[in-house]
Computed example of a mutant assay.
Amino acid sequence: MTDPLTTALAYHEAWTGHDFDRAMTHIADDVVCDAPAGRIEGAEAFRAFMGPFSRILVSSTLLAAFGDERTALLMYDTDTVPVRNAPASEFLTVRDGLITHLRIIFDRTPFDAARLAAQGIPT
């Protein structure tokens, strides 16, 4: 059986490598994701949430990765089309080789400002 850190790193490598379909092979059907936007439940809802972000990703640098027998913690910097240098972290729970829960932490403020600027709204 794959340990949680190996699963988390495989998932991270896939989505940051622009292969979101491969990333989803590491996600349980009944996944729960807690993110700044709120709770997301189920693999299809998670795909709808995370898929668009993976498409605007330019690059990602993994800063740290730790794991135990049930969980993994990843911290990374991302460079996206609208926002450069957007650090994030994910706390992942893994069961039977699949990610069942993610808690994603990132600052939404620069993304909100970029969205408003793209609409011509001063920030």
Results as ranks from 00 to 15, higher is better:
residue 1 M to D: 10
residue 1 M to Q: 10
residue 1 M to L: 11
residue 2 T to R: 14
residue 2 T to E: 07
residue 4 P to K: 09
residue 4 P to W: 05
residue 4 P to N: 10
residue 4 P to C: 08
residue 5 L to H: 05
residue 8 A to E: 00
residue 8 A to R: 00
residue 9 L to R: 15
residue 10 A to F: 02
residue 10 A to T: 10
residue 11 Y to K: 01
residue 11 Y to Q: 14
residue 14 A to S: 14
residue 16 T to G: 10
residue 16 T to R: 12
residue 17 G to D: 11
residue 21 D to H: 11
residue 23 A to N: 12
residue 26 H to E: 13
residue 26 H to S: 13
residue 28 A to R: 04
residue 30 D to N: 15
residue 35 A to Y: 08
residue 37 A to W: 05
residue 41 E to W: 02
residue 43 A to I: 07
residue 44 E to L: 12
residue 45 A to K: 13
residue 45 A to T: 04
residue 53 F to I: 14
residue 53 F to C: 01
residue 53 F to D: 03
residue 56 I to A: 07
residue 57 L to A: 03
residue 58 V to D: 12
residue 59 S to K: 12
residue 60 S to H: 06
residue 61 T to V: 12
residue 61 T to G: 06
residue 62 L to T: 11
residue 62 L to I: 10
residue 65 A to V: 08
residue 65 A to Q: 11
residue 66 F to L: 14
residue 66 F to Y: 13
residue 69 E to V: 07
residue 70 R to T: 10
residue 71 T to M: 03
residue 71 T to C: 09
residue 73 L to G: 08
residue 77 D to I: 03
residue 79 D to W: 00
residue 79 D to Q: 13
residue 83 V to T: 08
residue 85 N to F: 09
residue 85 N to I: 04
residue 86 A to N: 13
residue 86 A to D: 02
residue 88 A to Y: 05
residue 88 A to V: 03
residue 88 A to Q: 11
residue 90 E to C: 12
residue 90 E to P: 00
residue 91 F to D: 01
residue 91 F to P: 01
residue 92 L to K: 02
residue 93 T to Q: 13
residue 94 V to A: 01
residue 95 R to P: 00
residue 98 L to C: 03
residue 101 H to T: 09
residue 104 I to N: 04
residue 105 I to D: 07
residue 106 F to G: 02
residue 108 R to T: 15
residue 110 P to K: 10
residue 111 F to S: 10
residue 111 F to P: 06
residue 112 D to R: 12
residue 113 A to I: 14
residue 116 L to Q: 12
residue 118 A to M: 11
residue 119 Q to P: 00
residue 119 Q to S: 11
residue 122 P to G: 05
